[in-house]
Design a protein around this nucleic acid. Structure first.
Length: 263
DNA sequence: ACATTGACCTGAGAGC
DNA sequence: TGCTCTCAGGTCAATG
């Protein structure tokens, strides 16, 4: 699940649960998800401290420690947080477990080990090192910046939207939703979009991501005219009631309505 | 040089 | 029931 809206929901979840609790213990159950650091380093950096604030850039979540360094979470395709009280059995696939002095625990859960945990001194340097583009919901990411990010490539508009070096935060399913709301074909060449098309697309980016966050990133709570809850074979388009189709674009499955998104 | 594919992991679900 | 095959909301290195 974890694209920008999901990570934003995780950020809020952390804010309501584990924030500002003293961390008494850190356990790592899968050292291979640690990025350039050992379990020992992580423990000495974190134990006795607390998560003091949170930030997000694209699909990355940052939590600040009292020494002003940051822990970086990336959720891969299957990651999430689980804050719970009973210590006896952490959730299946818990890769890192933080325990607090109030008796609660925060599990960083990854079924597939495609997520990451890292440490960084500054968010900006991490973002730069990863080569991430501007966050899709950042205020300064305006129409002008969007045009710059999305044009100047020979690839399809869907690939361009998903490219984290161009825009940070949009993945496979939200690129589909954005293109559906903008009534644009996923295969359309990014460089061929009209000014009007780019404007509509930009609006769709902001609107879809904000709406998804407001829905708690839960497809069941999204508006009726959204494609997202209908990502299955044989589903009907919420606009024209035609059949939803799929195609492969840069290795990912795109869902779209051939009628509403013909160009 | 740039864009696309395969590898990385661990299941879930379909089909036989 | 159990086996095999395909697919999954991400990224990176290798390939064309």
């Amino acid at each position: 699940m974890p694209e920008l809206p999901d990570v934003e929901v995780f950020r809020k979840y952390l804010g309501k649960t584990a924030l500002c609790q003293s961390i008494v213990k850190v356990e790592v159950f899968a050292e291979d998800i640690l990025d350039d650091l050992s379990q020992k380093q992580l423990q000495s950096q974190i134990e006795g401290h607390q998560f003091e604030s949170t930030e997000r850039h694209g699909k990355y979540l940052f939590t600040r420690l009292s020494d002003n360094s940051w822990i970086v979470f990336h959720f891969g395709m299957t990651g999430y947080f689980d804050y719970f009280k009973d210590a006896d059995w952490p959730p299946k696939h818990t890769r890192v477990l933080f325990s607090f002095d109030n008796g609660y625990h925060l599990a960083f859960v990854l079924q597939r080990k495609l997520g990451r945990l890292a440490l960084t001194e500054h968010i900006n340097s991490f973002v730069k090192k990863q080569g991430l583009g501007p966050d899709a919901l950042d205020k300064s990411f305006n129409l002008r910046a969007f045009k710059k990010a999305v044009t100047g490539t020979r690839s399809s508009i869907k690939s361009a939207l998903m490219n984290q070096e161009r825009i940070a935060g949009i993945g496979n399913i939200y690129s589909d939703e954005i293109l559906f709301q903008a009534r644009l074909n996923p295969k359309a060449k990014a460089s061929r979009l009209s000014n009007q098309g780019l404007k509509m697309l930009f609006r769709a980016v902001k609107e879809v991501l904000e709406t998804a966050i407001d829905s708690g990133a839960d497809p069941r709570k999204m508006p009726q005219h959204y494609l997202l809850p209908r990502r299955e074979r044989g589903a009907k388009c919420p606009i024209c009631h035609g059949e939803i189709a799929t195609m492969k674009i840069s290795g990912r499955t795109a869902y779209f309505c051939p009628k509403c998104q013909s160009t």
